[in-house]
Design a protein around this nucleic acid. Structure first.
Length: 293
DNA sequence: CTAGGATCCTGTCAGC
DNA sequence: TGCTGACAGGATCCTA
């Protein structure tokens, strides 16, 4: 899915378009994608004004004037597309960015004032939208367990404290764990480990605090660069000549680059499997020091 | 409590 | 040209 930088890019794109708009109606095309009762839709969505668009970890939060919020998780293949006076799209990049909507991947859409429609598309149906009272968000199990936001404040001390609870697992599994640090997914895990020259199979207990610090700094560097390059939006999906672009080219050094030379040393990037996920490494820059594996 | 594998679902692609 | 299995930018559930 969209990871922290992609969700933040969506938030920044939606904020100026959505704030102040009124929600006129909701169409739920796949029941499992929407968590909330029909009665709540009538009572707390229809007619509500959008007050704010926020993000926590990989979750997008749309606050309504009814003191209810839409909590949106895009998981692997979710995307948000706005059509109308201001068209915009972000999230999992595919042809639904530009196709007529709703289409076969549209799960929910919202009809807004001024003829705007907001589509929630999700090919694999893992994503969801919850309608809950705004004050109940922080009590959601998933939210309350989250680790620190990597791009806000000084997350390092809390990150170190939490990752030491994962001493017996691999560093890749540990940084993918949202209760260790919020927002890192498969792309930024691989990029962070390449930047810090750590092999993803290294056990956490075999890493010093200094090495763990450099991994978090690597993740922050990769995520910051991704947000600055504009994320996976319609703008960098469709190129000027009509062909399809790949926003990973703008910041990724190893992710989906197997067979290509490492930008640092020229050795071919390899793809392996770690923590059940496809994992990209430079076998020369990231050697596994086999102490206790 | 932790660790790791199966699972939810649709679509695409490599290999036969 | 089918068919089959592997795999996918995530997190939860289940078992040990």
């Amino acid at each position: 899915m969209p990871e922290l930088p992609e969700v933040e890019t969506i938030r920044r794109g939606l904020e100026p378009i959505l704030i102040g708009q009124q929600v006129m109606g909701v169409v739920v095309l796949n029941e499992k994608s929407f968590h909330g009762s029909n009665n709540d839709i009538l009572q707390f969505i229809n007619g509500a004004i959008i007050k704010d668009v926020r993000r926590r970890a990989k979750v997008l939060i749309i606050d309504l004037s009814t003191d209810y919020s839409l909590v949106i998780h895009l998981k692997m293949t979710g995307q948000i597309v706005v059509r109308g006076a201001n068209s915009w799209a972000g999230g999992h990049p595919n042809e639904s960015f530009v196709e007529d909507l709703p289409n076969k991947s549209t799960r929910i859409y919202f009809i807004l004032s001024a003829g705007t429609k907001l589509f929630f598309n999700d090919q694999r149906k893992f994503g969801w939208i919850k309608l809950i009272p705004t004050i109940a968000i922080n009590e959601l199990d998933f939210i309350s367990k989250l680790g620190p936001e990597p791009l806000i404040g000084r997350p390092i001390k809390e990150f170190l404290r939490r990752i030491r609870r994962r001493n017996n697992t691999t560093i890749k599994a540990a940084i993918l764990d949202q209760s260790v640090v919020a927002g890192i997914g498969n792309i930024y895990a691989d990029e962070a480990l390449w930047i810090s020259k750590i092999h993803p199979l290294t056990r956490v207990r075999d890493l010093s605090d200094g090495q763990l610090r450099s991994i978090l700094k690597g993740a922050i560097e990769a995520m910051t660069k991704s947000i600055e390059s504009g994320g996976s939006t319609m703008q960098n999906y469709v190129k000027a000549d009509g062909s399809r672009g790949n926003y990973l080219d703008l910041f990724a050094n190893v992710f989906r680059r197997e067979g290509q030379p490492c930008p640092r040393c020229g050795t071919n990037i390899e793809k392996i499997r770690v923590a059940g996920r496809g994992t990209h490494i430079c076998p020369r820059c990231q050697q596994l020091l086999d102490i206790s594996n």
